[in-house]
């Protein structure tokens, strides 16, 4: 087993969203993990810049409010 040491004391996950044309909706293309917003932007740009996006945004995963998840019906009753 490889052993891993923690490089950053605290990290956050950020979801990455992008679109290729103005008329398209933003869609999630992946995520990055970084200790702050600066590095998250640098990592998102370095990792996801291969395609010609017209827009690329990142959102801290903890800011996403999930109404329901796969397998849940979303009615609030179950």
């Amino acid at each position: 087993m490889a052993s891993f040491s923690r490089v950053h004391q605290q990290v956050r996950q950020y979801e990455v969203f992008a679109r290729k044309a103005r008329e398209e909706p933003l869609r999630q293309v992946g995520s990055v993990v970084a200790p702050d917003d600066d590095l998250a932007q640098a990592y998102a740009r370095a990792t996801y810049d291969e395609e010609r996006w017209v827009e690329l945004v990142i959102v801290p995963s903890e800011a996403v409010i999930r109404l329901w998840a796969p397998g849940e019906d979303g009615s609030g009753s179950g």
Binding site: H8, D36, L39, A46
Partner: peptide
């Protein structure tokens, strides 16, 4: 701009 963000953040670590 992204080089700057990368350097600045690592400098703070």
């Amino acid at each position: 701009h992204y080089h700057y963000l990368h350097g600045r953040s690592w400098l703070r670590q």
